[in-house]
Protein backbone atom coordinates (compact mmCIF):
# COMPACT_ATOMS: atom_id res chain seq x y z
CA UNK A 1 0.00 0.00 0.00
CA UNK A 2 1.26 3.44 -0.86
CA UNK A 3 1.15 6.05 1.86
CA UNK A 4 0.50 8.91 -0.53
CA UNK A 5 -0.58 8.63 -4.12
CA UNK A 6 -1.16 11.89 -5.93
CA UNK A 7 -2.18 11.51 -9.55
CA UNK A 8 -2.77 14.59 -11.65
CA UNK A 9 -3.88 16.69 -8.69
CA UNK A 10 -5.10 20.06 -9.88
CA UNK A 11 -6.54 22.78 -7.70
CA UNK A 12 -8.04 25.91 -9.19
CA UNK A 13 -9.31 28.97 -7.41
CA UNK A 14 -11.34 31.69 -9.06
CA UNK A 15 -8.36 33.72 -10.13
CA UNK A 16 -5.48 31.28 -10.32
CA UNK A 17 -4.32 27.70 -10.58
CA UNK A 18 -2.66 26.77 -7.31
CA UNK A 19 -1.73 23.24 -8.33
CA UNK A 20 -1.21 21.95 -11.85
CA UNK A 21 -1.15 18.22 -12.39
CA UNK A 22 0.75 17.37 -9.21
CA UNK A 23 1.86 13.75 -9.42
CA UNK A 24 4.01 11.86 -6.95
CA UNK A 25 3.81 8.85 -4.71
CA UNK A 26 5.39 7.80 -1.45
CA UNK A 27 5.54 4.20 -0.35
CA UNK A 28 7.88 4.01 2.59
CA UNK A 29 8.17 4.82 6.25
CA UNK A 30 10.47 7.71 7.02
CA UNK A 31 10.51 11.45 6.61
CA UNK A 32 9.45 13.10 3.39
CA UNK A 33 10.68 16.64 2.90
CA UNK A 34 8.23 18.62 0.81
CA UNK A 35 10.30 21.49 -0.51
CA UNK A 36 9.25 24.64 -2.23
CA UNK A 37 9.43 28.41 -2.02
CA UNK A 38 6.65 30.65 -0.76
CA UNK A 39 3.52 30.29 -2.86
CA UNK A 40 4.78 27.14 -4.58
CA UNK A 41 1.67 25.21 -3.53
CA UNK A 42 2.90 23.38 -0.44
CA UNK A 43 0.05 24.33 1.87
CA UNK A 44 -2.59 23.78 -0.81
CA UNK A 45 -1.26 20.26 -1.45
CA UNK A 46 -1.34 19.55 2.28
CA UNK A 47 -4.90 20.84 2.56
CA UNK A 48 -5.94 18.39 -0.13
CA UNK A 49 -4.03 15.50 1.47
CA UNK A 50 -5.75 16.12 4.82
CA UNK A 51 -9.21 16.51 3.31
CA UNK A 52 -9.60 20.21 4.14
CA UNK A 53 -9.86 21.21 0.49
CA UNK A 54 -11.27 19.23 -2.41
CA UNK A 55 -9.21 18.79 -5.57
CA UNK A 56 -10.54 20.36 -8.76
CA UNK A 57 -9.23 17.39 -10.74
CA UNK A 58 -7.06 14.36 -10.21
CA UNK A 59 -7.06 11.40 -7.90
CA UNK A 60 -5.51 11.55 -4.45
CA UNK A 61 -5.18 8.53 -2.19
CA UNK A 62 -3.78 8.72 1.32
CA UNK A 63 -3.01 5.50 3.23
CA UNK A 64 -4.95 3.71 0.52
CA UNK A 65 -8.15 5.76 0.80
CA UNK A 66 -9.51 8.37 -1.56
CA UNK A 67 -9.45 11.80 0.11
CA UNK A 68 -12.81 12.80 -1.35
CA UNK A 69 -14.96 9.68 -1.17
CA UNK A 70 -13.37 8.03 1.88
CA UNK A 71 -12.59 11.14 3.91
CA UNK A 72 -13.50 9.60 7.24
CA UNK A 73 -11.10 6.69 6.78
CA UNK A 74 -8.37 9.13 5.77
CA UNK A 75 -8.87 11.34 8.82
CA UNK A 76 -8.68 8.41 11.22
CA UNK A 77 -5.30 7.33 9.80
CA UNK A 78 -3.72 10.74 9.35
CA UNK A 79 -2.46 13.24 11.91
CA UNK A 80 -2.02 16.87 10.95
CA UNK A 81 -0.45 19.94 12.49
CA UNK A 82 -0.71 23.22 10.57
CA UNK A 83 2.02 25.82 10.36
CA UNK A 84 0.57 27.79 13.24
CA UNK A 85 -1.52 25.37 15.29
CA UNK A 86 -4.54 26.88 17.03
CA UNK A 87 -6.47 25.52 19.99
CA UNK A 88 -9.36 26.44 22.22
CA UNK A 89 -7.15 28.62 24.36
CA UNK A 90 -9.18 28.24 27.53
CA UNK A 91 -8.43 24.51 27.57
CA UNK A 92 -5.33 23.00 29.13
CA UNK A 93 -3.10 20.64 27.15
CA UNK A 94 -4.65 17.66 28.92
CA UNK A 95 -8.22 18.85 28.25
CA UNK A 96 -7.41 19.37 24.58
CA UNK A 97 -5.81 15.93 24.28
CA UNK A 98 -8.83 14.29 25.89
CA UNK A 99 -11.24 16.14 23.67
CA UNK A 100 -9.30 15.21 20.54
CA UNK A 101 -9.10 11.60 21.73
CA UNK A 102 -12.87 11.47 22.04
CA UNK A 103 -13.27 12.85 18.52
CA UNK A 104 -11.23 9.87 17.34
CA UNK A 105 -13.54 7.60 19.34
CA UNK A 106 -10.82 6.36 21.72
CA UNK A 107 -11.78 5.11 25.16
CA UNK A 108 -10.90 7.01 28.32
CA UNK A 109 -8.13 4.70 29.43
CA UNK A 110 -6.33 4.80 26.08
CA UNK A 111 -6.66 8.58 25.94
CA UNK A 112 -5.14 9.04 29.40
CA UNK A 113 -2.27 6.72 28.57
CA UNK A 114 -1.54 8.25 25.17
CA UNK A 115 -1.77 11.76 26.63
CA UNK A 116 0.86 10.97 29.25
CA UNK A 117 3.18 9.37 26.68
CA UNK A 118 2.83 12.07 24.08
CA UNK A 119 3.08 15.09 26.37
CA UNK A 120 6.24 13.54 27.78
CA UNK A 121 7.62 12.73 24.33
CA UNK A 122 6.93 16.25 23.07
CA UNK A 123 8.33 17.87 26.17
CA UNK A 124 5.27 19.74 27.44
CA UNK A 125 4.54 17.59 30.45
CA UNK A 126 5.34 20.37 32.91
CA UNK A 127 2.76 22.69 31.35
CA UNK A 128 0.08 20.01 30.97
CA UNK A 129 -2.41 21.59 33.33
CA UNK A 130 -1.91 25.21 32.31
CA UNK A 131 -4.30 26.94 29.88
CA UNK A 132 -2.96 26.86 26.32
CA UNK A 133 -3.40 30.65 26.11
CA UNK A 134 -0.16 31.02 28.07
CA UNK A 135 1.92 28.77 25.79
CA UNK A 136 4.82 30.01 23.66
CA UNK A 137 4.92 29.38 19.90
CA UNK A 138 7.27 26.44 20.38
CA UNK A 139 5.06 24.84 23.03
CA UNK A 140 2.00 25.20 20.81
CA UNK A 141 3.91 23.61 17.95
CA UNK A 142 4.86 20.66 20.12
CA UNK A 143 1.33 20.30 21.48
CA UNK A 144 0.13 20.48 17.88
CA UNK A 145 2.33 17.52 17.02
CA UNK A 146 1.38 15.62 20.21
CA UNK A 147 -2.35 15.94 19.52
CA UNK A 148 -1.86 14.85 15.91
CA UNK A 149 -0.41 11.57 17.21
CA UNK A 150 -3.05 10.58 19.74
CA UNK A 151 -4.69 8.03 17.43
CA UNK A 152 -1.36 6.52 16.32
CA UNK A 153 -1.67 7.63 12.70
CA UNK A 154 0.09 5.94 9.81
CA UNK A 155 0.88 9.32 8.29
CA UNK A 156 1.79 12.51 10.10
CA UNK A 157 1.50 15.68 8.03
CA UNK A 158 3.34 18.75 9.26
CA UNK A 159 3.14 22.12 7.53
CA UNK A 160 6.35 24.09 8.09
CA UNK A 161 6.80 22.66 11.57
CA UNK A 162 9.93 24.63 12.44
CA UNK A 163 9.92 27.81 10.38
CA UNK A 164 8.25 29.91 13.09
CA UNK A 165 10.50 28.67 15.89
CA UNK A 166 13.69 29.98 17.47
CA UNK A 167 16.89 27.91 17.04
CA UNK A 168 16.36 25.94 20.26
CA UNK A 169 12.75 25.15 19.46
CA UNK A 170 13.75 24.15 15.95
CA UNK A 171 16.34 21.76 17.24
CA UNK A 172 13.86 20.11 19.64
CA UNK A 173 11.15 19.67 17.05
CA UNK A 174 13.58 18.22 14.49
CA UNK A 175 14.83 15.73 17.07
CA UNK A 176 11.23 14.78 17.77
CA UNK A 177 10.50 14.21 14.09
CA UNK A 178 13.63 12.10 13.84
CA UNK A 179 12.24 9.85 16.59
CA UNK A 180 8.78 9.67 15.03
CA UNK A 181 9.88 8.79 11.53
CA UNK A 182 11.00 5.36 12.67
CA UNK A 183 7.39 4.32 13.28
CA UNK A 184 5.40 6.23 10.69
CA UNK A 185 5.61 8.31 7.59
CA UNK A 186 6.21 11.96 8.36
CA UNK A 187 5.34 14.29 5.52
CA UNK A 188 6.87 17.66 6.29
CA UNK A 189 6.71 20.78 4.18
CA UNK A 190 9.49 23.29 4.54
CA UNK A 191 11.49 25.87 2.68
CA UNK A 192 14.59 25.31 4.81
CA UNK A 193 17.04 23.01 3.04
CA UNK A 194 19.13 22.35 6.13
CA UNK A 195 16.19 20.68 7.86
CA UNK A 196 15.58 18.41 4.91
CA UNK A 197 19.25 17.54 4.69
CA UNK A 198 19.22 16.64 8.37
CA UNK A 199 16.18 14.44 8.67
CA UNK A 200 14.51 13.66 5.34
CA UNK A 201 14.84 10.34 3.54
CA UNK A 202 12.88 11.35 0.50
CA UNK A 203 12.25 14.73 -1.05
CA UNK A 204 9.56 16.15 -3.25
CA UNK A 205 10.26 19.54 -4.80
CA UNK A 206 7.37 21.71 -5.91
CA UNK A 207 7.47 24.98 -7.81
CA UNK A 208 4.60 27.04 -9.22
CA UNK A 209 2.16 24.25 -8.45
CA UNK A 210 4.11 21.57 -10.31
CA UNK A 211 6.24 18.77 -8.90
CA UNK A 212 9.77 19.08 -10.25
CA UNK A 213 11.29 16.11 -8.54
CA UNK A 214 10.38 13.23 -6.25
CA UNK A 215 13.22 11.01 -5.20
CA UNK A 216 14.92 9.48 -2.21
CA UNK A 217 17.74 11.58 -0.87
CA UNK A 218 20.28 8.84 -1.49
CA UNK A 219 19.34 8.49 -5.14
CA UNK A 220 19.36 12.23 -5.52
CA UNK A 221 22.85 12.50 -4.11
CA UNK A 222 24.07 9.60 -6.22
CA UNK A 223 22.70 11.06 -9.41
CA UNK A 224 23.72 14.65 -8.85
CA UNK A 225 26.76 14.54 -6.69
CA UNK A 226 29.98 14.54 -8.61
CA UNK A 227 33.12 14.35 -6.54
CA UNK A 228 35.45 17.27 -6.96
CA UNK A 229 38.62 18.65 -5.48
CA UNK A 230 38.76 22.30 -4.60
CA UNK A 231 42.01 24.11 -3.88
CA UNK A 232 43.60 27.52 -3.83
CA UNK A 233 47.22 28.56 -4.39
CA UNK A 234 49.07 31.19 -2.40
CA UNK A 235 50.65 32.38 -5.62
CA UNK A 236 48.16 33.95 -7.98
CA UNK A 237 50.64 34.29 -10.85
CA UNK A 238 51.08 30.56 -11.34
CA UNK A 239 48.81 29.22 -14.07
CA UNK A 240 47.98 25.52 -13.99
CA UNK A 241 45.89 25.53 -17.16
CA UNK A 242 48.32 23.70 -19.37
CA UNK A 243 49.13 21.10 -16.73
CA UNK A 244 45.47 20.32 -15.93
CA UNK A 245 44.46 20.12 -19.58
CA UNK A 246 47.12 17.48 -20.14
CA UNK A 247 45.91 15.06 -17.42
CA UNK A 248 43.80 12.07 -18.45
CA UNK A 249 41.99 11.69 -15.11
CA UNK A 250 40.73 15.27 -15.09
CA UNK A 251 37.24 15.37 -16.48
CA UNK A 252 36.62 19.05 -16.18
CA UNK A 253 38.08 21.96 -14.28
CA UNK A 254 37.42 25.59 -13.60
CA UNK A 255 39.33 28.44 -12.07
CA UNK A 256 37.85 31.51 -10.46
CA UNK A 257 39.90 34.04 -8.48
CA UNK A 258 42.67 31.57 -7.78
CA UNK A 259 40.25 28.86 -6.62
CA UNK A 260 40.44 25.73 -8.74
CA UNK A 261 37.63 23.18 -8.95
CA UNK A 262 38.68 19.89 -10.47
CA UNK A 263 36.15 17.19 -11.38
CA UNK A 264 37.84 13.81 -11.71
CA UNK A 265 37.10 10.69 -13.75
CA UNK A 266 39.26 8.69 -11.40
CA UNK A 267 39.04 10.00 -7.86
CA UNK A 268 41.74 7.84 -6.18
CA UNK A 269 44.20 8.80 -8.89
CA UNK A 270 43.31 12.48 -8.54
CA UNK A 271 43.67 12.40 -4.77
CA UNK A 272 47.13 10.78 -5.09
CA UNK A 273 48.50 12.97 -7.85
CA UNK A 274 47.04 16.45 -7.55
CA UNK A 275 49.03 17.75 -4.56
CA UNK A 276 52.28 16.68 -6.22
CA UNK A 277 51.40 18.43 -9.44
CA UNK A 278 50.75 21.64 -7.55
CA UNK A 279 54.06 21.42 -5.71
CA UNK A 280 55.92 20.59 -8.92
CA UNK A 281 54.56 23.77 -10.47
CA UNK A 282 56.35 25.72 -7.73
CA UNK A 283 53.25 26.84 -5.87
CA UNK A 284 52.12 26.25 -2.30
CA UNK A 285 48.59 25.36 -1.23
CA UNK A 286 46.48 27.92 0.65
CA UNK A 287 43.82 25.26 1.12
CA UNK A 288 42.87 21.93 -0.39
CA UNK A 289 39.69 19.93 0.13
CA UNK A 290 37.44 17.25 -1.23
CA UNK A 291 34.07 18.68 -1.97
CA UNK A 292 30.66 17.77 -3.32
CA UNK A 293 27.62 19.55 -4.62
CA UNK A 294 25.50 20.54 -1.65
CA UNK A 295 21.77 19.96 -1.54
CA UNK A 296 21.53 23.70 -2.05
CA UNK A 297 23.38 23.38 -5.38
CA UNK A 298 21.14 20.49 -6.41
CA UNK A 299 18.00 22.33 -5.38
CA UNK A 300 18.96 25.42 -7.36
CA UNK A 301 19.90 23.28 -10.33
CA UNK A 302 16.57 21.44 -10.29
CA UNK A 303 14.48 24.55 -9.70
CA UNK A 304 16.24 26.63 -12.32
CA UNK A 305 16.15 23.93 -14.97
CA UNK A 306 12.49 23.30 -14.28
Amino acid sequence: MRVIECDGLTKEYKDHKALKNVTFSIDNIGCIGFLGGNGAGKTTTIRVLTGLAAPTAGKVKVVGYDVVTERNKVTSEVGYCPQIPAFYNYMTAVEWMHWVGKLYGLDKHTIAQRTDELLELCGINEARNRPISGYSGGMKQRLGIAQALIHNPKLLVLDEPVSALDPMGRHDVLLLIEKLKRHMTVFMSTHILDDVERIADHIVIIKDGTVLLSSSLEELRASHVEPLIEFKLDQEDIDLADVLDGLAWVKEWSQDGGVYKVFANDMPQAKARLPHIVLESGGTLAYYRLSALTLQDIFLKVVNNG
Partner: peptide, 14 residues
Protein backbone atom coordinates in the same frame (compact mmCIF):
# COMPACT_ATOMS: atom_id res chain seq x y z
CA UNK B 1 -10.11 32.91 11.54
CA UNK B 2 -8.04 31.54 14.42
CA UNK B 3 -7.31 28.27 12.63
CA UNK B 4 -8.97 25.98 15.18
CA UNK B 5 -11.52 24.98 12.55
CA UNK B 6 -8.79 23.42 10.43
CA UNK B 7 -7.50 21.55 13.49
CA UNK B 8 -11.01 20.15 14.06
CA UNK B 9 -11.95 19.28 10.48
CA UNK B 10 -8.90 17.06 9.90
CA UNK B 11 -10.31 14.81 12.62
CA UNK B 12 -13.18 12.41 12.04
CA UNK B 13 -15.82 15.04 12.77
CA UNK B 14 -18.33 15.73 10.04
Amino acid sequence: ASGVASMVFVKPVS
